[in-house]
Write a protein that binds this DNA or RNA. Structure first.
Length: 498
RNA sequence: CGGGGUGUAGCUCAGUCUGGUAGAGCACUCGCUUUGGGAGCGAGGUGCCGGGGGUUCGAAUCCUCUCACCCCGACCA
């Protein structure tokens, strides 16, 4: 890895020449996976727990998830879906009902087999009473929600029925990674139920659109919308739709999926209704989910060698205020900073006024590493002049400007909008420059074989059936990410993925 | 689940080959001087050397088992 493989503006490059020390070591170019872990720690988002594959999400990381819940949750309700909650434990017999489904999930299920602990001979505790039927800790809830729907759906007048739950799920992962693939993770899973095949398919596509809109408008992550190939489909689905994003190492991340389940689960769960024709029919269902993995994507799309960069709409804080005090002006500066905090809060912004007893420079670096969109410094000069000095995280110190306090409060919304657009544009340009159209599998071989190139290949979807594609897939550990809607299924996007 | 690597202070790591009283930088605590992109000087605290078992007079170091983390695969809505 000799050339810089990551996005750097000329400005950032000159900066790094001046200041080779980055807040995060190693840098993206040096060791991307280690950089990713370091960003999470530096921003105090999460850490590993005593339980393998299960992470502790710390307040700063969880605040991001809460904003995702607020925004995405609102969008889900806006399309007529209601929230509910279903059990964590699923009877083994439910999971076993659908053959293809259990084939897909069997290897990653955690199973609860006992319900009581007793003192063992060594004084330790041992599970004592076996359950008559083991439970599976939900890896997803199609089966148990299907069971409920079979009771709730009687007539075509009950349809559509649209449910969503925010919950944790467990999939026993062989290779866990913070946020990206943890054994326990948080998500929302939606389960909708319809009268006709057309209604179901239209819904699966609509919910994918909700995800795409959310990712682009709230997280500033550009996505490719498309359909998974049959091999990549959700077990039991007749079609799986996906939104794929490109990380700064050129790998793909599936940021949300939506499944047209046809009648697979209504058949196994017996979701029947009396139709307009008086006859009995199987319902058509969909399911769709987005998880805390998205937070990993957020990091890998936007963060830089100084740490996180938060898209303003889901940033835990829009602004951090850093008082720069001297011995003789501390009271005045702190009072000014707190007044500014109140003004900004009154204007609807999320603000952190950092009055801790610490050096201003340390507070600034913390703000940078946490990716707070706008950092405000107020000291004696600002107090005297009634101004604030503001810096945008994505642009760095070069963007430092001093504004009249009231003008700043009035302009902050616009600054945050601009930053959102800039993050999106930067990520989109990065991605678009790294999607390469190829005509043949030899060209695909040449692309993935070239160390200096990384990203996605786009090619004729018919090439997926060529036996040589299977060889290349194995050789480079790449997979078809999707058949983009934009090409009406004629093209396939190929890449490495998380 | 296969292959490889790493576990030593809050963090990054040296020390392990060749066994002999536990180390550095940063961070932390106190004091003074400082304060607009990671301050300076002085003083101070910090460890079941991942865990169990062994070899040895003596183990961070050697042997063995185990756990965790990281990487490459396999697997994976």
């Amino acid at each position: 890895m000799t050339e810089p493989r990551f996005y750097m503006s000329a400005q950032q490059q000159s900066q790094s020449a001046k200041k080779p020390q980055t807040a995060i070591t190693p840098t993206r170019a040096e060791d991307f996976p280690a950089w990713y872990q370091a960003v999470i720690r530096a921003a105090d988002m999460a850490e590993n727990s005593p339980v393998r594959g299960c992470m502790i999400i710390k307040p700063y990381g969880f605040a991001i998830w809460e904003h995702i819940q607020d925004i995405l949750g609102g969008m889900i309700k806006d399309v007529g879906v209601e929230n509910a909650y279903f059990p964590l434990l699923i009877p083994l017999s439910f999971i076993a009902k659908e053959a293809e489904h259990i084939d897909g999930f069997a290897t990653e299920c955690a199973v609860v087999t006992h319900h009581r602990l007793e003192k063992g001979p060594d004084g330790g505790l041992i599970p004592a009473s076996p359950l008559s039927e083991p439970f599976v800790i939900r890896p997803t809830s199609e089966t148990i929600i299907g069971e409920a729907l079979s009771n709730w759906v009687r007539s075509y007048r009950d349809l559509p029925m649209k449910l969503n739950q925010w919950c944790n799920v467990m999939r026993w992962e062989m290779r866990p990674r913070m946020f990206l693939r943890t054994s326990e993770f948080l998500w929302q899973e939606g389960h909708n139920c319809f009268e006709t095949a057309e209604d179901g398919n239209e819904d699966a596509r609509k919910m994918l659109d909700v995800y795409a809109t959310f990712l682009e408008d709230a997280l500033a992550i550009p996505v490719i919308r498309g359909e998974k190939t049959p091999e990549e489909r959700f077990p039991g689905a007749i079609a799986t739709y996906t939104v794929e994003a490109m990380m700064q190492d050129g790998k793909a991340l599936q940021a949300g999926t939506s499944h047209d389940l046809g009648q697979t689960f209504s058949r196994s769960a017996n979701i029947r209704f009396q139709g307009r024709d008086g006859g009995e029919h199987l319902a058509w269902t969909t399911s769709w989910g987005m998880s805390t993995r998205t937070i990993g994507g957020l990091i890998m799309v936007h963060a830089d060698d100084d740490g996180l960069i938060m898209p303003p709409k889901i940033a835990p804080y829009h602004v951090s205020i850093i008082p720069v005090v001297k011995a003789d002006n501390e009271d005045r500066v702190v009072a000014y900073a707190k007044a500014l905090e109140q003004d900004l809060k009154a204007a609807g912004f999320r603000v952190k006024c950092d009055v801790r007893d610490d050096r201003p420079s340390n507070k600034m670096w913390e703000s940078i590493k946490k990716g707070v969109p706008v950092r405000v410094e107020v000291g004696g000069n600002e107090v005297d002049q009634g101004t604030v000095t503001a810096v945008r995280r994505d642009l760095g110190r070069e963007s430092k400007q001093t504004l009249d306090k009231s003008a700043f409060v009035a302009q902050l919304g616009g600054m945050l909008d601009d930053m959102h657009k800039a993050l999106y544009a930067r990520a989109k340009a990065f991605r678009d420059e790294r999607i390469f159209d190829v005509e043949t599998l030899d060209e695909m071989d040449a692309f993935f074989g070239d160390e200096s190139k990384f990203g996605f290949v786009r090619m004729d979807a018919a090439l997926l059936a060529d036996p040589k594609f299977a060889e290349l897939k194995k050789k480079y550990a790449v997979t078809p990410r999707c058949l983009p809607f934009a090409d009406n299924g004629a093209k396939a996007i190929i890449g490495k993925s998380y």
